[in-house]
Write a protein that binds this DNA or RNA. Sequence first.
DNA 1: ATAGGGTTAG
Length: 835
Amino acid sequence: MLVPSFLAPKLSNSTLLHFPFKSTSVFAFFSSSTTPSSFTHLLKQCKSCIKAKLVVAGAFSPSATTWLSQVVFYWNNLIKRSVILRCNGSALVLFREMLRLDWNPDGYTYPYVLKACGELRYLFCGESVHGMILVSGLESNVFVCNGLISMYGKCGVLGYARQMFDETVVRGIGDVVTWNSMAAGYVQKDEYKKVLELFDSMVSFNCFELRPDAVSLVNVLPACGCLGDWRRGKQLQGYAIRRCLHEDVFVGNAIVDMYAKCTRLDDANKVFGLMEVKDVVSWNALVTGYSQIGRFDEALGLFERMREEEIELNVVTWSAVISGYAQRDLGYEVLNIFKEMMLSGAEPNVITLVSVLSGCASIGALRQGKETHCYAIKRMLSLEGSNAEEDIMVLNALIDMYAKCKEMKIAQAMFDVIDWRDRNVVTWTVMIGGYAQHGDANDALELFSAMLKDEYSVIPNAYTIACALVACSRLSSLRIGRQIHAYVLRQGYEPTMVFVANCLIDMYAKSGDVDAARLVFDNMRQRNTVSWTSLMTGYGMHGRGEEALQVFNMMRGAGLPIDGVTFLVVLYACSHSGMVDQGMNYFKNMKGDFGVVPAAEHYACVIDILGRAGRLNEAMKLIEDMPMEPTSVVWVALLSACRVHKNVDLAEHAAAKLTELESENDGTYTLLSNIYANAKRWKDVARVRSLMKHSGIRKRPGCSWVQGKKETVTFFVGDRSHPMSEKIYDLIEDLIHRIKAMGYIPETSFALHDVDDEEKGDLLIEHSEKLALAYGILTTTPGVPIRITKNLRVCGDCHTAMTYMSKIIEHEIIVRDSSRFHHIKNGSCSCRGFW
DNA sequence: ATAGGGTTAG
């Protein structure tokens, strides 16, 4: 008996032949009256429903019949049928029952039983069967050996598979299937190089009978595809033609797929055109090939041709088109095609669902997302055995969908329900990304640090890092951002470094350290458009417009494509640095020089530029000349300009337009109210305030946070919850007193109250940014900048007060508000009035 | 035995 070394220690165990089958849903009983014909009848029943209970009274003894060998044959048939119908669990139950009734499995039984073990990834079971095979002396049967190799391969223990393979080959009983089974094991585990090696040794193996067949090619061709080795694939294509194997649809499909995976779509198309027999798979290979290299129009063209030629579309076809749309964030198209698919009667599978959910996420289609959720639940309930690996993907897609639809509570609830052992990197990443973008970014960072705990045994990937950095960007959390940067450097996320580095640029810029952003940019080995525009945006929001334009010129020099977003960033930079003429020039020439047609967003930016410069009439004229309907962003830009330049009439016009567009929000009302207050039109102020009350729109509470040594501390308006409150308020009063002596006059129009000026002054000192500053002064070492972030725009009075204060405190004040950065130092601010 | 999927930034 040839006992493989890996099984030997287990053989001494008396539990060897113990079978851990739990299911008892299927019984096969044999009575003394069972005849071959009644047995055949039972088999037919099984064919229609393998779960049918084969009820026969009493146990059946093998010795009581004259058709003994026939019965084993029928058992084999029953098991084989189960396996073919993919009811592997039933196959094993039948096998156990066969043993219980004392029938002896033969060389025809084991291959199927092993196949069932492999499909179910029941390694322990498979080993037990292996033990029985050794006892029965069938270990020299090549079918059985091949079954063992493929069982171990399927269970992922390639070492065992390889050992069985080597022994089989050494004993000289190996055939093509032996080699192909081993190759299939390697393919399963993505060991593509091993597949190629195996194929080489198969060709050079000195055996007359042994030549690679169609199956061998079908195993090795995808390996070439995955390795991008199309030269090798072409050789194999030559081999296929010499052996006339290329006429096999499977081989043809594998060749098309190989070229498609190597992004050589023209070669793939040529092979496809020459194929005499095509099936859906051939078409699908080409469709997905085009879709994945971004030639989506050609993919859609093929899809249309498939419909014209009335090729029966299957799930894969539909899924490929749906995922193509989803990847392009074309959510509406996703939903349309999905509807068509459902009407055609095709059954969606896990992949379809995941793609549809990603489409829902991209357009925030909560209702359709919930429908898909219901469908998924229905499907999971009706499916016989659910697959944990596939389940987690659907769950991840659902969590992501809910997060992108801003339903963080549902997302969190779903996350909580998943056992931590079932959560994978993506589960964590979609949650972190969800909080970073659509919830409280603090929660995102908390989740990120929880994830890093060893007990969860998941390692963040580049996507996770990117999401965590987005959270830092939103919070301006330079300290945590730096820590993550250090983590990135330690781990080295080489393959996706461009993504991560772009996020780092964004994080440093938004955390107030645009020079660090530049450093990251300069050290990148590869850059893409986003790298450049991120850096430009960084310079733009810090009011360093000249440098932004320098980067733009470098970008042009580097030959990168200049698109609409690039121009948006350029105009944004000009507007925040008061570079009116340059901005207007770029706007005028963007179409002529770069072929980029200005969109509504570009108009909004230019109106902002003109507005800041006080050229309100020009701005209004431009709005009237816009080739498209002015969007709400345009009117908001005008309204803000009216605030700065105290134009009540135009402000009223802009506010009326915003109401027309039904996109007025708390910001609109606050601006308008401030404009009225500034003009001392108190009745109008009261009217706006009562309007707000009636429409249920509340002023978002102003909130500022300041970066402490260890943590970030948040203050709301009039906040007295901090333990240091008393000291904070004392300090503000003291500072205000001192700067008043320097000439500071409180700008009372910024307080939303119709009371006398004295009291308004009191309310102004409660503004969150002043509280944050006082806390910063109290806790920061002299000389170190104080970094404050505010959720709304910084209040004009606070801005003036801080500018005065910067003369008498020993800190630079770096304020990030919802519009830009203010570096306040020695009595002046980097914004130079361009908010 | 061949085809298909989710998480990222301006």
